[in-house]
Design a protein around this nucleic acid. Structure first.
Lengths: 383, 383
DNA sequence: CTCATATACTCGTTCTCCGAGCATAAGCGG
DNA sequence: CCGCTTATGCTCGGAGAACGAGTATATGAG
């Protein structure tokens, strides 16, 4: 075995990163993006073919010139299993090196008990391992809760206790992350925030989740629990949050807040409750919605002041909420901005990936690891 | 001129980055840190000597073995002029490639008018250029205000209007940044947050400034205005901030907040006023301080929830404020944390760089540029 | 004084990438 | 239908960086 030479696979890794980030890119396109000479492009792609990382197929011609090739994942190349665990169902897909998702599956939970669900996920991993063998390199898991070092610390929608997730992947490396964070990654890579240097992503379901993204990379914090914007004290200090803190923004912007405004009981399912309130046309409902939308927008303005993003993306219930009270949103948003931001406030865009967001984000972060130089070098050493 | 070869100076740039980040590091130490073979270390240092970027001097021996050498800036190598503009004075230093500050100067403003001050800074740059010639590669400037693309947008303490700062550096590249952000960089590189992957730095003078640091790099946002944590709506929405927004945290944690608590007029100099209140021992003053400290601590807790930092560093008046009411601080800090953070809350440490922080941070960011591969390659091409 | 230790220097080898020149596969226009 | 244009791919010699093995050197320990 040859020793690891400095940067031996660096350019190859760069090529794979391009391929993973821009599915369907051509060989000539990669060469342009990385400023590779045609000679280098030939050599690098040949090397990647040799070690079963990529194949090439003729690209549909676009104008004059010698046709180039599309870079595709090798049929014997490495894959990642992406899992998205949701409240009532879960999704899986196989991610290949060219960034495409295959073998999409959607399954409902029969039982929501943690052990049962995790066993099902574990079985899925085992099945995938049987099917793909050593090609399966990694498992990437999106979870609706706070994740820290592959431990689930709290999951309000699932109502699970603290939980170690590593068993799901068995011997394989696991990459567990918060679903809101991962959907932010998807937006920043291929969605509404594509190309943004700094982006803030927020998603309302039960409470609010989100993440700060810098060049497409989430600010995951010391242990992966970054992005819990719902627990910043933007709200009324008199209210205590289930998280243990007081005045959390969370309490001001979802179905629970609407119910409070309307003097109704705290709903069991805040998402459905919110959707129901959004269908109402009575004055009280409209006022409650406007109030919640204002709380959302002024919090967003605070985050814009703090982070100066190029763009803010919103997902989940934030989209219909804003749509229901656009004026209240705009007023509170602009009103919460520092003066110098008001000239050209960062746009607040609806997320383009919806249900697929977490899965695609999980896929993207896993591919980041798989297309890193050491991972490529390790794979190449075995072929 | 040879075309830029991919990574031609990459290892050399890595070596210089090490030297700049750890002043006084030895050649053997760099080789260990970068996992270079002894042969490569010999070659790279020789190359760096040849192009007048480094010199070596015998290192004081530490134990057995052949003595190694200290890597020092070359006497004819590139330098940066670091400037720290403060309310009543300004500081300068020359920064060399090995990260050391030379020729420290401290000057009081004769006039605080923007044009006069900027002219003085400009003159300093010109003098430095006369003295150092082409060795002077860049000017790095710390300013007590919001900076965006080398424009000063607002500077409450200086009471200046919006202002273009580029003229200060003349033809040279300018790197202007907020002083609080830069002092955070200093903490993250060589201060209390050294080694932290994610750090939050906060500093109270008039209002609160700060930054989120990821691997020692500040999250500067789309245009360099990131880190304005003082303008997150942690406070009372009834109050309007000079920044244009409402409920800003800023209004709850400095001398203006103390005066409001005490029913006194808004002070002209909130810093001195705060220091005076901190010397008082009457019940009203103690209560006001406790209130402000609580507002500070619960805001910090919110930022910890959001960013999950390894460590929080505080500077300026935040240090004596916390010292004056440590119990109020701890209670509000812990009380504002999400439950899972309470087991091992990130430490809130006093900044170790005090007045030198902005200057050292400005120096560090400038050196990041100067020790980047393209800058090294460009310099080498001329020697 | 000798040995152990840590580091520095030398040199041949390996490997990647480059650029120049040539080859190739399309579309375009007469 | 045949050259021309255009974009891309392939080949090959060369440059340069980094490595490893071997050797040299300066210190401390016993």
């Amino acid at each position: 075995m040859t020793p690891v030479r400095r940067g031996q696979w660096q350019t190859a890794a760069d090529v794979l990163t391009q391929v993973a980030r821009q599915p369907g890119i051509t060989r000539a396109g990669v060469a342009r993006a990385l400023r590779l000479s045609t000679g280098s492009a030939t050599e690098v792609t040949a090397r990647l073919r040799d070690v079963q990382l990529l194949t090439e197929e003729p690209a549909p011609s676009r104008g004059r010139g010698r046709p180039t090739t599309l870079l595709r994942a090798h049929p014997e190349g490495p894959v990642v299993l992406a899992l998205d665990l949701r409240q009532s169902n879960w999704r899986t897909a196989i991610v290949t090196l060219d960034g495409s998702l295959e073998n999409h599956q959607y399954k409902r939970h029969r039982s929501r008990r943690a052990q049962v669900v995790l066993d099902n996920l574990r079985r899925q991993v085992e099945q995938t391992q049987e099917q793909y063998g050593v090609r399966l390199q990694m498992v990437s898991l999106a979870v609706p809760g706070t994740v820290r070092d592959n431990h689930l610390l709290q999951a309000p929608t699932l109502e699970w206790a603290e939980l170690d997730l590593t068993a799901v992947a068995g011997e394989l490396p696991l990459l567990a992350g918060n679903d809101a964070t991962l959907s932010g990654v998807a937006e920043a890579r291929t969605g509404a925030a594509a190309g943004a240097g700094t982006a803030v992503h927020l998603i309302i379901e039960v409470g609010i989740g989100g993440t700060l993204l810098i060049d497409g990379v989430p600010a995951h914090g010391a242990s992966g629990a970054g992005g819990e914007y719902g627990h910043m004290p933007f709200g009324d200090r008199a209210r205590t949050c289930p998280c243990g803190a007081r005045g959390c923004w969370d309490l001001e912007i979802d179905g629970r807040a609407l119910a409070r405004q309307l003097g109704e009981a705290t709903p069991d399912d805040p998402v459905r409750y919110t959707e129901a309130v959004l269908r109402r046309t009575d004055r009280a409902a409209l006022a409650a919605v406007a109030q919640v939308v204002s709380a959302l927008a002024s919090g967003i303005a605070g985050l814009v002041n703090a982070h100066d993003p190029d763009v803010v993306t919103i997902g989940g219930l934030a989209i219909p909420l804003r749509a229901a009270a656009p004026d209240a949103f705009d007023e509170a948003y602009r009103g919460g901005l520092m003066t110098f931001h008001r000239g050209a406030p960062p746009p607040v865009l609806a997320a383009t990936h919806q249900v697929d967001g977490p899965l695609r984000g999980a896929a993207a972060l896993a591919l980041d690891q798989l297309t890193s130089e050491p991972a490529i070098a390790a794979w190449a050493a075995r072929h």
